[in-house]
Design a protein around this nucleic acid. Sequence first.
DNA 1: GATCGCATATCAAACGCTTGACAGCATGTA
DNA 2: TACATGCTGTCAAGCGTTTGATATGCGATC
Lengths: 159, 159
Amino acid sequence: MPEPSALRQRVTWALRRAEFAVQAIKEQGLRPLGLAVPHYSLLMAIHAEPGLAGAELARRLGVTPQAVASLVARLEQRGHLERRAHPRHGHVQELYLTEDGRELLRLADAVISQIEQQIGLELGDETTRLVALLERVIDLTADRSALPFGLPEGNEDRS
Amino acid sequence: MPEPSALRQRVTWALRRAEFAVQAIKEQGLRPLGLAVPHYSLLMAIHAEPGLAGAELARRLGVTPQAVASLVARLEQRGHLERRAHPRHGHVQELYLTEDGRELLRLADAVISQIEQQIGLELGDETTRLVALLERVIDLTADRSALPFGLPEGNEDRS
DNA sequence: GATCGCATATCAAACGCTTGACAGCATGTA
DNA sequence: TACATGCTGTCAAGCGTTTGATATGCGATC
């Protein structure tokens, strides 16, 4: 018996709306740079771990390898990143940012940082608390869903 | 100059991951019912405001009318909801849940409620604080992005 | 050294959603 | 009454993604 009036009290609903709103504002800020949010995420992920393979990157971002492939193809075509053959694995292609890509990422990150700062300005000290609470939610769900999704944790081997 | 190690401190990044994790676990729980998350959201929205029109529903959920149309078509085909002609507007189609749809929603809501409760159990008193913080983030971004996105606030007239 | 298992990358097809455009109905105004 | 405007619903095209399947290359086991 779902109570309509109780909907706005739900954590997951607030979470969805907040994420939606933030995503929208990010996209709005990145548009002038000709960059979509997934592009930014991809560039940032490669920046965090240069030489990453496409499949590994897909796991980092929580999307399918094909989605990464299309993003990579587009960004490579624009000269923002380049694919090099793996020294040992002939089949694997390592991904690196070009200087142009790094410059673009700098601009994009300025936009994102500004949004971050604005939120930090609004929430003040409670920002860290919000992050901590979100992390607890993540840890809670991580147990039962076997979905790989994370940032550079302990540099697993990518020989 | 994006610092990779600083990524996990970012609010928006934690927000994205948390939303992703919750969405994944929801989808996992709803799968046995043959229901996707958007379907559930649609059913719940109609349950909250019976007789809603498709376009109005689209604004409630923050998606386009076409997306709603395809969802409605599918759910109507399965007999979960029905479309009736508006008494005055001949063109408008009011949406109502069938008994079958209500029963399905009951089951689906049990799944979602369980997830909610589990989060509430983990966070305890801080649950309300988390919701409050998320609401503040939403309000912050609502100013600059003119995207309609909300729940039944003050029952605007739908003559 | 040969074979099996695993991972990567790519292709093809299908799905869902968005954008853009159009027609129908109702209301408000000249 | 006639017309303009706004909202609704639908069609068509395009984009991005997921799913499924296939081929290739590396490493481990026998």
